[in-house]
């Protein structure tokens, strides 16, 4: 019944005679293409286009300014300070997130009974919205009755004014961000560990490695792709994080957690400076893409050759 090249590979799969007319394929994929085009592709291009115009609510004129909006952004000290805070936020999220997800994944990989249960628990934060997570962390880190301060006071230290101190507020924001994004990263890394041939780690043990050295020399290098994926994930979520920070600190205290995304919302929705906000949108896109490429190049450098 088949014609053409009978390889089982999906990319060159055979087709049943008289069945799979290309027209059917076009018709069935058209709605998806249209929706994606209208609601995803068009807005991105539209943003890029609009970022070249000076659009303010005060005038009906929208003069073409080329890269003027970008130059305005780069000349704005508020941009650079929010970029710096975003850098701290992203780096902190990646560092804490990767450390925790690697440690947790290695531990999970060692158990058989109870694995499904604990893994199921660990995914729970994934189903919590960013606003709800922020609210839970606000409650958790309340300086009067919050749990961390209770522990500190129990140990004889003074409680910390978590959310009214810029430094600590950044820590809480990072913790909340990692909390919501950890489940998926944990799944990536655990999945990587579980695809490692068990004989490899056994061979390492027989070859004289301790459990720790086998983890460092054998398992970790083999899951570099999954670690990269987790890094991209944490980075993407942190660079584009809005709800968590907005609901947790609103950028404060002062502007100590005013990230790029919050700056973008302020420009667009509070100051109605649409052109500049669009320039910021594009900058966030490019930042994301640049960082992702950077992680991938790191992987190529340190991963398997």
């Amino acid at each position: 019944m088949a014609e053409g090249n009978p390889t089982p590979d999906a990319a060159t799969a055979t087709r049943i005679v008289g069945w799979q007319h290309p027209l059917i394929a076009y018709i069935s994929s058209a709605p998806a293409m249209i929706i994606v085009a209208v609601f995803l592709a068009f807005p991105v291009l539209y943003a890029a286009w609009q970022s070249l115009f000076a659009i303010t609510p005060l005038s009906r004129e929208t003069p073409f300014v080329g890269f003027g909006n970008y130059i305005a952004v780069f000349n704005d000290p508020a941009f650079w300070s929010s970029l710096g805070r975003t850098a701290i936020f992203v780096a902190g999220t990646i560092a804490l997130g990767l450390t925790l997800s690697i440690i947790f994944a290695f531990a999970l990989n060692r158990i058989v009974s109870g694995l499904r249960f604990i893994r199921g628990l660990a995914i729970l934060p994934y189903i919590v919205s960013s606003v709800a997570a922020a609210l839970m962390f606000r409650t958790l880190f309340n300086s009067d009755f919050g749990f961390p301060n209770q522990v500190l006071e129990f140990l004889g230290f003074e409680g910390i004014a978590w959310l009214s101190n810029g430094f600590y507020a950044m820590i809480v924001v990072i913790l909340a961000q990692v909390w919501t994004d950890l489940p998926l990263a944990l799944l990536f890394i655990l999945g990587g560990l579980q695809t490692i041939d068990k004989q490899l780690t056994e061979a390492a043990l027989v070859d004289g490695a301790t459990g720790l050295r086998s983890a460092i020399h054998i398992s970790l290098p083999l899951i570099v792709p999954q670690i990269t994926l987790a890094t991209v994930w944490f980075s993407f979520k942190a660079v584009t994080s809005l709800g968590t920070v907005l609901a947790l600190t609103g950028g404060g205290p002062g502007d100590s957690t005013q990230l790029l995304t919050l700056e973008m919302v302020r420009l667009g929705f509070d100051e109605y400076d649409t052109g500049t906000a669009m320039a910021l949108v594009i900058i966030i896109f490019l930042l994301n893409a640049g960082l992702t490429l950077f992680y991938l190049s790191l992987q190529r450098k340190f991963g398997m050759k």
Partner: peptide
């Protein structure tokens, strides 16, 4: 010596 040889791929 393992059945799959267990050579470290990296």
């Amino acid at each position: 010596v393992f059945q799959s040889y267990a050579l470290y791929p990296h």
